[in-house]
Design a protein around this nucleic acid. Structure first.
Length: 269
DNA sequence: GCGACAG
DNA sequence: ATCTTGTCGC
């Protein structure tokens, strides 16, 4: 799978000002509304295993063979090399895994993550045989200073529906404090504020999503920070993460890509 | 100058 | 992201 918009491929040799200018172009090309090859209504079953016990009736026109392909993307690092892994699932089962290694050209700079990790990710996409219906990327999407986080950059460049799944908030203001402990299933809207320079304050740019929480005592799990990358709305992005989460904090595609990236680290010299 | 910041 | 032991809880 190759970039549909080669002009947006992240170039680590650009100046910081040029990187930021490119991000503004990417944000304009990004669509933060649903435009996928499957019905958002079908996401309810995306992460579920095949319905063996027939507790529900499935339309013959929308069976397992047509089920959407959901991919997870994650990176691991070894010295100056980035290892990117992509895992593709259908009906909750892995149908493809690929990885790629690339030397990192620049350090981690908040807001410019895609220029550090994007190259390795696109190399991994080049190895991919299946075209995912939606991709879950580790990091922010629209929740970004210029609405062009890693998930947006990858989504727009490949022109594939993408969702940003981060473990902490880069910018924006949550509707309610994220310091509280919320039960699983809770979704807290995040609005643009002064730090988001490309859209009006108050614009909904994502959600904090509690995919898991401890029942009883004094320990708690932080929510995930979910935002649209490309061709997905904020609400659908959160729906997709909830639908693919399966007992763990991270959605299954992301969790599997994470461990595969770690595993692939072993074969890096 | 101070604060703040995905992975 | 990565470096790492123990510890709490189901």
């Amino acid at each position: 799978m190759e970039p549909v918009r080669p002009e947006f491929v992240p170039d680590p040799s650009l100046s910081q000002a040029e990187m930021e200018a490119l991000q503004r172009e990417i944000a304009e090309a990004a669509r933060f509304e649903n435009d996928m090859e499957f019905s958002p209504a079908a996401i309810a079953s995306v992460g579920d295993a095949p319905d063996d016990d027939q507790t529900t009736l499935s339309p013959s026109t929308d069976d397992q063979a047509d089920a959407p392909l959901v991919a997870g993307v994650d990176q691991a690092f070894v010295d100056d090399k980035a290892v990117s892994a992509i895992v593709v699932l259908q009906n909750g089962e892995v149908i493809e895994r690929v990885s790629a290694v690339k030397v990192t050209e620049i350090p981690y700079i908040p807001g410019l993550l895609s220029f550090r990790e994007g190259g390795a990710i696109l190399s991994a996409f080049a190895e991919l045989d299946h075209e995912p219906d939606v991709v879950l990327v580790d990091g922010s999407g629209r929740i970004h200073f210029r609405e062009a986080g890693l998930a947006t950059h990858i989504g727009v460049t490949m022109d594939v529906p993408a969702v940003g799944v981060a473990k902490s908030l880069l910018c924006g203001t949550p509707e309610q404090s994220l310091e509280e402990t919320y039960p699983d299933g809770v979704r807290i809207p995040i609005a643009a504020d002064d730090s988001v320079e490309t859209c009006p304050d108050g614009t909904g740019i994502g959600h904090a999503v509690q995919t898991r929480q401890y029942d009883s005592p004094n320990r708690y799990i932080n929510p995930l920070i979910v935002s649209p990358g490309h061709r997905v709305s904020a609400a659908t992005a959160a729906d997709l993460v909830e639908a693919t989460a399966d007992g763990y904090k991270l959605p299954e595609p992301t969790r599997l890509a994470d461990s595969y990236a770690d595993e692939a680290k072993g074969s890096v010299e």
